[in-house]
Simulated scan of single mutants.
Amino acid sequence: MVIFTEEQTEAVVTETSYCWKKNIVKVEDGYLKSTGMITNTRIPIVHIDTVVYSYNPKKPAIVPILKIIGKGTVLCEMEISAEHIEAVQDWILRVIDQS
């Protein structure tokens, strides 16, 4: 499925991946993997409890940070543009609910 966010940036969303521009967040072999300009991570899905995001207004460029949390610890932080942050968060929450 191809979706467009408010700013009309194209994203391709499937059951196993969320892709936009040159960034990919996907589920593969029990891991949440991300590649591209945002970050490169590999986290076991069973360790993920929730996903939150926040803005740090003290930084010169306000870029939201997506935080993947497991067992009370931040497992990963990803800088994702504001146009995709909520969609990626929702997608990851659906993925961890299904596992």
Rank of each mutant, 00 (worst) to 15 (best):
Y31T: 03
K71N: 15
S34I: 05
I65W: 03
I65A: 08
N56I: 01
G36F: 08
S99M: 03
E83M: 05
S99H: 13
Q8I: 03
D97N: 10
I62P: 00
T9H: 12
I45V: 13
E15R: 07
I38P: 00
D49K: 10
T39H: 09
P44W: 02
K67H: 12
G70K: 04
V2R: 10
S81E: 14
G72W: 13
Y31Q: 05
Q89R: 14
P60S: 03
P64M: 02
M37Q: 08
Y31I: 01
I62H: 05
T73A: 06
T39V: 06
I96N: 11
I92Q: 10
E6N: 13
T73L: 14
T16V: 05
D97C: 04
I92S: 10
I65P: 00
E83N: 11
I68N: 07
K21M: 10
A82Y: 08
V46H: 12
Y18D: 07
L66M: 12
M37H: 06
C76I: 00
F4M: 13
I92W: 10
I69T: 07
K71Q: 15
G36C: 06
D49R: 09
T5W: 01
H84L: 01
H47R: 09
A82W: 06
L66Y: 11
A87T: 03
T9Q: 11
